[in-house]
Design a protein around this nucleic acid. Structure first.
Lengths: 158, 158
DNA sequence: GACATATAACTGCTCAGGCAATTATTGTCT
DNA sequence: AGACAATAATTGCCTGAGCAGTTATATGTC
């Protein structure tokens, strides 16, 4: 007996992961963005900011990869953040193709001031979830992401 | 002792739901869309299609609401689908403001032919997930969506 | 019945993001 | 060294989607 999660019979919108993820995305991003309203920062910019701060990425290409985001879009995103003094570009001496990104003190300050809002938003949203459920959710989402990155579906096309 | 899932200490990118959901979205939608490549249909159009077929919505406004999608965008989306003969518009006689949407035989046929691809894609992607884990994931995501819809955060702004 | 309010569909404007180049640089293979 | 593929950053082009209206209709209130 194969372990098929979806079959012709049970494949319906409300049980479809694509549908649920799209929906979640459409709900979460505007909500998060409204928290940043006065700071005039995009959710995408926010992710770049904390990625740099936490050392998850140090170049545009790395940011693009770990966010699974278009590289061209990242360039323009960095343009804006640089103009606003949140990050700085510095050409690498070892490999002259790459440009290292650094978060500026202003960028760090912004990240610090915005973090509590997100924390409160999520804690409120997660009311009713036990600690175990929360951890399970994180774990399952992370595993799913891992599986999708392994899949050569898209990459094979190129 | 308050049940705070996030604190200053443990709030990092890889444990942040906003980040995970964004990432998942960026991975899932292009993958799904590549499955539809030869059918020349968008993931958004796909969701509209099955929503109509399964009776989850019967007007543009309902579609917009249950997808948490912009109403204006839905209008243009329906325009395209109508042009391609996948759906039909029919003005309501009871309430002349609303326009009922109906999936055409061609639309049904397309949905039927595309469904197996999605099923296979997800079953492959979900390799390594037990049935229980899968159900847990669906349940947690659904609950999270419910919580986000209750939240008046955004709606209060308007 | 007149008036205010709400809702459905739609339109124009703008912008972010995906895609396909282009350029500069590095690494590899012979 | 020379040829060729791979990678980083960038740009132009186009489409999809959010937002703020507009119009037509319905509902609720006095």
């Amino acid at each position: 007996m194969k372990k098929t999660h979806y079959t012709q019979k049970n494949f319906e919108c409300r049980r479809s992961l694509g549908y649920l993820i799209r929906r979640l995305h459409n709900l979460v991003i505007p909500n998060a963005e409204s928290l940043f309203a006065d700071a005039d920062i995009t959710f995408s910019q926010w992710v770049v900011l904390v990625s740099l701060r936490d050392g998850l990425a140090s170049t545009a290409a790395e940011v693009a990869r770990h966010m699974d985001h278009d590289a061209g879009a990242i360039t323009r995103l960095i343009d804006q953040m640089e103009k606003r003094g949140l990050v700085a570009r510095r050409r690498s001496t070892k490999d002259r193709r790459v440009i290292h990104l650094e978060i500026t003190p202003a960028g760090k300050a912004l990240a610090t001031s915005l973090t509590p809002r997100l924390i409160e938003f999520w804690n409120t949203t997660l009311t009713g979830f036990t600690q175990a459920e929360f951890e399970t959710l994180l774990s399952l989402l992370t595993r799913l992401i891992g599986r999708l990155e392994e899949q050569p579906t898209l990459k094979a096309a190129s």
